[in-house]
Structures are given as C-alpha cells and as structure tokens.
C-alpha cells in the first residue's frame, strides 16, 4: 500500500507566481478552488509529525482536507524558496534537517 502523504499548501500570490515564472516552474502550481493556485508540498507521516511538533501553531486538518495548514507565512516562504532552489516539491527532509 502506498504511503499516505499529507500536503502543506503554499498558496500562490503574485510574488510567489513571479518567482516560479522566473525559474520556469509556474507549471508546478496546481489550479484549485475557482482559479486559486497552490503548490502542494507532500509530507510523509514522520515529516507531518515533526512539522506539527516544531511549529505548534500549525494544524493538521484531519476532518476535511487532510492537509497541514496554518504554518506561519515566514516558514512557508522558506519552504517555497527551497522548492524553487531544488526545483522539486520533495523538500521536506532537507527543510526539517535544520530543526
């Protein structure tokens, strides 16, 4: 059985879209919710638990979306910058290694 993945939603505002376009990654953002774009950075179980431990203000939306929400914007900006740097959504091991 495939391992369950839980996304961190990085919502795409104009600034983030421009950064993605500059490095040719705009296609990585998925269109959801009536045109709103998002980068979904996947976490496995262990990564999800560590994110929730390191950032206690974050919340796992277990009832509806099964995603990790409410991470502070500056934390999401760091994850976003790592996605751009690595040109990949699989960045959580590297991101969490600093914590």
């Amino acid at each position: 059985m495939a391992e369950e993945r839980y996304p961190i939603s990085l919502w795409i505002n104009e600034e983030r879209l421009e950064k993605l376009q500059n490095v040719g990654l705009a296609g990585m953002a998925k269109e959801v919710l009536a045109g709103l774009k998002v980068l979904e950075v996947p976490c496995n179980d262990a990564q999800k638990d560590k994110v929730l431990k390191v950032f206690p203000m974050a919340k796992f939306d277990s009832a509806t979306t099964k995603s990790i929400e409410l991470l502070p914007k500056d934390v999401k900006d760091k994850i976003f910058d790592l996605v751009v740097e690595e040109k990949s959504l699989e960045v959580m091991d590297k991101f969490l290694s600093a914590y």
């Binding site: 795409i12 505002n13 929400e69 914007k73």
Partner: peptide, 23 residues
C-alpha cells in the same frame, strides 16, 4: 471535487492571498 474548510481559508489568508469570490 475540492473540499475546503475554515482552516484552509485561514491558511490562504495568512499567506497573503485573496481567495476567489466563489469561495
């Protein structure tokens, strides 16, 4: 379908994004 919750909308707003009026 795309489910959305109050938590998800808070996350969008915290990211400095204005959600579409349909949402």
């Amino acid at each position: 379908k795309k489910s959305f919750s109050g938590t998800l909308i808070r996350s969008i707003i915290q990211d400095g994004v204005k959600p579409p009026r349909l949402i």
